[in-house]
Simulated scan of single mutants.
Amino acid sequence: MKRALVGAPGEAQPTRVVATELAFARAAREDGQWTAFRAFAAPGAVIHARSGVVDAGAYLSGLADPAEAVQWAPRAVWMSCDSLIAVSQGRFRDPEGKVGTYTTAWKRQSDGDYRWTYDVAVLDDPQPPPRPELGPASEDEIVVSALSSIKGLVSDCPREAEPVPQPPEFAVAPGVSHAMATSPDRTLRWRWEHKAGGDRRFILEYLTSGKWVTAIDQSLGMASPEKAGE
């Protein structure tokens, strides 16, 4: 966690999201997977499932905790300069040993804590060859490798009296469901898209070195039932 980012400006400290993410994963192991999802969810949080984006509160309320939770850890965190929204992306491993990538959006709450507002997870296809030499999931490469190489990235902070560069325009095809979140300081934005038939996409853009950069533009494919709630 100490490697995430040192010396970030002001309140924008990606280490705080990393710490919350790790506490979230630990709670899943110790208290139960869906219990942890409910405890760390922000009001109005959503899960991007196979059928589309669903209300997390309604969906999770009917789920019993599995005997063994998915293991996960972040690899990168992007945060707006004002620290109010962030996106993390990392790797997960399910109890059967299958691995994949997840993406989670976070919002800073009035008490300063971060809670997740959007979550999606996708299994690797094809799966990598099995690694029988690996130890328990809590000690395998999903967690250990991630902790040694977490990237923390903060958007440019607007200078006083200088306008914030406008983000690029985008178009969404007819019939595609979508939603977007933009930080109040307009330095980071993310959005999801969902086409009929299950074609899904996640895009993250942030302001860095004076220009807007696309950090994630990912076709999500089919959701992982273990972490994405479907």
Rank of each mutant, 00 (worst) to 15 (best):
M1I: 12
R3E: 14
R3H: 15
A4G: 15
A4D: 14
L5D: 09
V6H: 14
P9K: 03
G10N: 05
E11S: 12
P14A: 15
V17G: 01
V17D: 03
V18A: 13
T20I: 01
E21C: 10
E21Q: 15
A23R: 11
F24N: 09
A27P: 02
A28N: 11
R29F: 09
E30T: 15
D31F: 07
D31H: 15
G32H: 12
G32Y: 14
Q33M: 15
W34D: 04
F37T: 05
F37Y: 12
R38K: 10
A39Y: 04
A39V: 03
A42Q: 12
S51F: 13
V53E: 04
V53Y: 00
D55S: 07
G57V: 02
G57C: 04
A58P: 06
Y59N: 07
G62Q: 13
A64R: 11
P66K: 09
W72K: 06
A76P: 05
V77G: 06
W78F: 15
D82W: 00
D82L: 06
A86E: 13
S88M: 11
F92A: 06
F92T: 00
R93T: 12
D94P: 13
P95E: 06
E96K: 15
Y102W: 14
T103F: 06
A105E: 13
Q109R: 09
S110D: 14
G112A: 08
G112Y: 04
D113C: 11
Y114F: 06
R115K: 10
R115A: 08
T117C: 07
Y118A: 02
V122C: 07
V122A: 07
L123I: 03
D125A: 11
P128D: 05
P128C: 12
P129F: 08
P130W: 02
P132Y: 00
P132I: 03
P132T: 10
L134H: 08
L134P: 01
P136M: 07
A137V: 03
D140W: 03
E141C: 12
I142N: 08
V143N: 08
V144G: 13
S145M: 07
L147F: 05
L147G: 03
K151V: 13
V154E: 00
V154K: 07
V154Q: 04
S155Y: 03
R159M: 01
A161V: 09
P163W: 02
V164E: 01
P165Q: 04
P168Y: 11
E169L: 13
F170L: 13
F170A: 15
V172P: 10
P174M: 01
V176Q: 07
A179L: 05
M180R: 14
S183P: 00
S183H: 03
P184L: 04
T187Q: 06
W190N: 04
W190H: 03
R191N: 05
W192P: 05
E193G: 15
K195W: 13
G198W: 04
G198K: 06
G198I: 09
G198L: 04
F202I: 06
E205Q: 11
E205K: 02
Y206H: 13
Y206V: 01
W212S: 08
V213R: 00
T214H: 00
I216F: 01
D217R: 10
Q218V: 09
S219T: 13
S219A: 12
M222Q: 15
A223F: 01
A223E: 14
S224E: 05
K227Y: 15
K227C: 02
A228E: 08
A228Q: 02
E230I: 03
E230P: 08
E230V: 06
